[in-house]
Design a protein around this nucleic acid. Structure first.
Length: 454
RNA sequence: GUGAUUGUAGCUCAGCUGGUUAGAGCGCCGGAUUGUGGUUCCGGAGGUCGCCGGUUCGAAACCGGUCUUUCACCCCA
């Protein structure tokens, strides 16, 4: 049998684990600096917790777990024979792998509301699973690093999350990321102005193609989707949506003057933009992007998305937003939440592409005891124990070398693993210690080894 | 879900338009040489050419299906 792993999953080598840990620790440190506390939730949840939270497309991408036992016996005969996959699935699968960290978190908040002091700031770094087609930067198992606040309506949270993005990416040496920001209320306002809520998605999708296919074709696409000429006229400013964030806000304000909700969204956005302008960012750029809609239908206020530096072809490396009703679904209304997510795996790929990883020291022994004779094994193991107790990483080559070639293999092992010191000979409490870098060889006592190696 | 793309020794790949026992480098194992290493040399193990079926006198090479890889669309981290 040829060994293999499922589509969209990966193994990680020691070096990769080290690099991933480095990213994770950077994010974790920033989270804690900003006052977030860690929680963890199960890998799988009840299907009812997850289904219907991510839209139709999302439901399709959730990995379902089959019930145990004779699950088919409990399924409806008629549905089975008619091959009603979706309905049958709900009968034979009651659990599913988590799709993101936000919905399980909302569930957590509602379930533990009596133990929580609000506003509650939590972070969570765990894998999530999606039954997607893998491609560049897209996996079926990947890590999300989420930070959310529930129980605060203050827009300062939005401001702080932008600072948090900036802090993490700056620390990682990843400069010139673009934090795109939009507001669901602005989108609602646009929908109001063009006179159709359900056409909003078509509208933003078409608008997003502006720099690719040009204004004429975008307008043509909108018309074909049933958006009226008159409506397109009303939102004309969006077609020349250039310039500074403040310019954009000004034209949005004019355009949405007839929509209460739209004006509200512009106000919120203005507060965030002004605050960030005042506070400054280290290396990220903040950019108003009205085409930013995101599929997650639970966002109600701010919407974030982070793009990698220009020139790196990669989907968004972070995203988030404000959701006012998420805990309401679980029976806890009127709790506003806002949060962001970092895509660990994509950040990894971007850092790799830009060669931003420092060379990491892999765990390895500092001293290797060669194994050329069995008589001194006990002496060597005792010495190793002493060194380990002194905090020095060391080990004995496990297999005894009999032939010349086998001895050579041990030297080669030390070379390949870049081990700094080798003890090749032990005689009457005296150890032959070799420095592998400068080839210097000295006979010394155990205490002297500790001294030299430290 | 749509459209492409990939699949040959542990790894990286050769193998021309179908034709004899399928190759190389690295790695691995054994040995020689080097006083205790990164050199050089000799030898060896290891492949049902992703899988199934078809075309053909003959297929790793052609065709179909399937799985896998990578990529674009969709969507997303």
């Amino acid at each position: 049998m040829k060994p293999s792993i499922p589509k969209g999953t990966r193994d990680f080598s020691p070096t990769e684990v080290a690099n991933r840990t480095y990213i994770m620790n950077t994010i974790k440190t920033a989270f804690e600096t900003f006052g977030f506390q860690p929680i963890e939730t199960p890998s799988f949840e009840n299907s009812s917790t997850l289904m219907g939270k991510y839209g139709e497309e999302g439901d399709r991408l959730i990995f379902k777990i089959l019930n145990s036992g004779d699950f088919l016996k409990k399924a409806d005969e008629k549905l089975l024979s008619e091959k009603e996959s979706i309905k049958v699935t709900s009968q034979i699968s009651e659990k599913a792998l988590r799709y993101d960290l936000t919905v399980p978190f909302a569930r957590y908040v509602v379930q533990h509301q009596n133990e929580i002091t609000f506003p509650f700031k939590r972070y969570q770094i765990q894998p999530v699973w999606r039954a997607d087609r893998p491609q560049k930067g897209r996996f079926r198992e990947f890590y999300q690093c989420d930070a959310d606040v529930v129980g605060s309506q203050s827009l300062w949270q939005e401001v702080e999350f932008i600072q948090l993005y900036d802090t993490v990416f700056s620390k990682l040496g990843l400069e010139n990321t673009t934090i795109k920001i939009n507001n669901r209320k602005i989108l609602s306002g646009i929908a109001e102005v063009i006179g159709a809520q359900e056409k909003l998605i078509d509208f933003t999708v078409a608008l997003d193609k502006l720099d690719k296919i040009g204004q004429e074709k975008v307008e043509a696409e909108m018309l074909s989707k049933g958006i009226t000429e008159e409506a397109i006229q009303k939102v004309q400013p969006l077609f020349s949506f250039e310039g500074s964030n403040l310019d954009k806000l000004t034209s949005l304000e004019k355009m949405l003057s007839t929509s209460e909700e739209g004006k509200n969204g512009v106000e919120e956005l203005r507060f965030v933009i002004n605050s960030i302008t005042e506070l400054g960012l280290q290396s990220a750029n903040l950019e108003v992007d009205v085409t930013l809609a995101r599929g997650l239908n639970y966002y109600t206020g701010a919407i974030f998305e982070v793009a990698a530096p220009k020139g790196v072809k990669m989907g968004s490396i972070g995203g988030g937003g404000r959701y006012d009703d998420l805990t309401g679904i679980f029976g806890m209304p009127d709790v506003s939440g806002v949060g962001i997510s970092f895509g660990l795996d994509r950040i990894y790929l971007v850092l790799e592409e830009l060669k931003l990883f420092q060379s990491v020291d892999l765990p390895k022994p500092k001293v290797l005891f060669l194994n050329f004779d069995a008589e001194t094994d006990i002496v060597k193991m005792k010495a190793i124990t002493t060194l380990r107790n002194a905090g020095i990483k060391c080990e004995m080559y496990p297999d005894l070398a009999i032939s010349n070639n086998q001895q050579k293999k041990q030297w080669k092992y030390a070379t390949n693993r870049e081990i700094e010191f080798v003890v090749s000979k032990v005689e009457k409490e005296r150890y032959l210690l070799k420095n592998m870098q400068n080839f210097e060889q000295t006979e010394c006592s155990l205490a002297e080894i500790i001294e030299k190696v430290k």
